[in-house]
Nucleic acid binder design. Structure first.
Lengths: 247, 247
DNA sequence: GTCTATACAACGATAGAC
DNA sequence: GTCTATCGTTGTATAGAC
């Protein structure tokens, strides 16, 4: 568990939460150590990274169902027999990926709710935090979004519950601001859904942001500034995000 | 080709454009008559509807790749041999679905650009029109969104081009309003992308709207009213959509 | 712990009877 | 125009050598 950084930047977020590198894959290994035949962590961690990375490359371009384990074997450089020392079955591989991501999101969300922030700062933290997560775990998010319907019903429900919980964070912050008379909002739940949908665009429509040459900070400021305008927050027009508005 | 209705309602849109019933499936049949072995329209149209409807039911719940032609055969009530009188191959079936939808969207968009509307009315027409389309062709939209990466690169590009063209409609309307000094907007392209993303939520997150008991008119008004707030359009707070704001 | 070789079920697709 | 029967291929998964 980590602390939310005081400074809001991708670099500070990257330092506060371990979502890449050897330390990250070590945590992934620990999370389903029991479902794996290989006991030696040093060898398991390296191969897990190979398998997951290859899965993302193949599934996120042609689709998980269209990816065969022969594809995965040649892309990861691990033989078909070797794969089964790590994954149990093809469907379990997808299930594990969803489980790991959901676990991480839960952890970050759980830490956020303990923070005592005023409504504006809270909304900023949620928006920037989720976008930083999506940036660092981009292929994980995209995979889980696109392949969710391939999982069993229980897991689909857990993913939907998580999304509702995330919406709930936004709703609570909006309602707090409405109570303060800082915000005006007729339907906080619908507005929260809109924000969540816009955040998810960052991984769903990566091609478009690349084409438009929009970077993460610009997109975060765009969502946040527009949200304050919708909430009719005073001072919103001046760029209340505290970060330069995109040109 | 049809005329855009003066009144903005799903019923008026439904009357203006033929997107359901026998007449609709007849148009679908005409659109790829040459790729089909069956010549008798009366029998072909009925089976086409069965095949497409069954495909949507299966693909939109478990995924197109995970759906076997044996599944499709039993769901549609047409034998495996019979299917091949209509579809050429499994991949071509997905390709045809994307082609039909893109064709329809192009037609509606093409008709819209010929209209001479002021910026606010134009934005309203685009938002409501696209949502009405998504409502009537819901399974088509969802299928094309989720299965796009299974199609060949050329077709993926055409789908992305269409989305950029749709964003372009919004950008033009926003820019016209900025020129008129009706709107304030620093980055019309990014705002247009946000709107498109929010519109697509209507078919992507159907479960959530159902859970929240949000209907189409409420969602349309939500997007439109918030857009006017973001554009700092005077009178936006009063619910400029002309339709009662959701409770 | 990783590999090659293989089992065998399920797939897309087609031929030919009706 | 639609069906049943069947083809060859490819898929997931495993056994057993190393």
């Amino acid at each position: 568990m980590a602390d939310w950084p005081e400074e809001i930047s991708l670099e500070a977020f990257r330092r506060a939460w371990v979502l890449e590198g050897e330390e990250f894959w070590n945590k992934v290994f620990e999370m389903h150590r029991d479902k794996i035949q290989i006991k030696n962590p040093r060898v398991a961690i390296g191969n897990l990274e190979k398998i997951f990375t290859a899965t993302f490359k193949l599934a996120n371009s042609k689709g998980f169902q269209a990816m065969s384990l022969r594809d995965l074997s040649s892309e990861s450089g691990i033989s078909m027999g070797g794969l089964y020392a790590y994954i149990g079955s093809k469907n379990e591989l997808a299930s594990v990926i969803e489980g790991v991501l959901r676990n991480y999101i839960d952890e970050v969300i759980g830490e956020l709710v303990t923070k005592d922030l005023d409504p504006v700062d809270r909304l900023r933290a949620i928006i920037y935090g989720e976008l930083f997560m999506m940036q660092l775990l981009n292929p994980w998010y995209y995979f889980c979004y696109m392949e969710l319907k391939g999982l069993d019903r229980e897991q689909q429900q857990q993913a939907m519950d998580l999304e509702l919980r995330f919406d709930g964070l936004l709703v609570d912050a909006i309602n707090a601001g409405v109570k303060n008379k800082q915000f005006v909002c007729a339907n906080p739940e619908l507005l929260a859904s809109s924000i969540t949908g816009q955040l998810q665009q960052w991984h769903l429509k990566h091609w478009k942001f690349k084409l438009r040459e929009v970077n993460l900070e610009q997109y975060a400021a765009h969502i946040f500034d527009n949200l304050l305008l919708v909430l009719q927050y005073r001072g919103a027009e001046a760029g209340a995000s505290g970060i330069a508005q995109s040109a």
